[in-house]
Amino acid sequence: MKAETDNNGKKYLFSKSLDTVFLAVNNVFKFIGLIFKEAFTAPFEWKEIINQCFNVGFKSLPLVSLTGFIIGIVFTKQSRPSLSTFGASSWLPSLISIAIIRALAPLVTALIAAGKVGSNIGAELGSMKVTEQIDAMEVSATNPFKYLVVTRVMATTFMMPVLVLYSGLVGMLGSFMNIHQNEQTSFAAFIKNAFSTISFLDINSSIFKAVCYGFTIGVAGCYQGYYAENGTQGVGKAANTAVVVAMFLIFIEEMIIVQFVNSIR
């Protein structure tokens, strides 16, 4: 109880539980500050960063491919009837491409990565923490924060845009196959139609979103894992909380970024 008031520099501002939330937020910002500090000081852990990029990016490809493809097909199928009623089914490619590039690909890919990568990081670091492997790393003269946390956060931040663009392309491919089958649209016509409505701003804002989501997933997983407590029970809790927190934050970020992008469009 004392520690809480000390760290906040105030007596319970609102209530005990609210103040605990503020304290946790404060700790997360310190954690993020440390990530930036360590990320820009030598020596750099290039080998481990590449290793983690492979873990995050390559190993998520099958799942991201499948979901991207299915979303492309399903969204095309569902949009066709309402466009047809206005006789506007030739607009299908441009509608789909806007929906996929602007909204669906970043959001769905990020949620899937939060589930797969976020829980993986939370569980991995959590079990290393509770079995003292992180302490063992520290006493063998390695900086575990840099070696474990910074590399993972960098990997998720770098790889998420790649995964998002990839899933967008796969989604468009799924959509094309469905449209080609039903409207006999040629590939060239589909591409021309699809990309006529997409601006650089759309692509850039999706990449920006992906960077934010990737960073969020990495930080949530690492923070929960790195400070896991209470044995094996704590490992499960770390993995679970990492996913829940990451997903929640991704939706909030989505809302803020969309507001912002629309205001400059």
């Binding site: 290393m128 079995t131 003292e132 492997q133 302490d135 063992a136 790393m137």
Partner: peptide
């Protein structure tokens, strides 16, 4: 370490 703490 008490519980070996090998990197598993």
């Amino acid at each position: 370490f008490q519980n070996s703490a090998l990197y598993d």
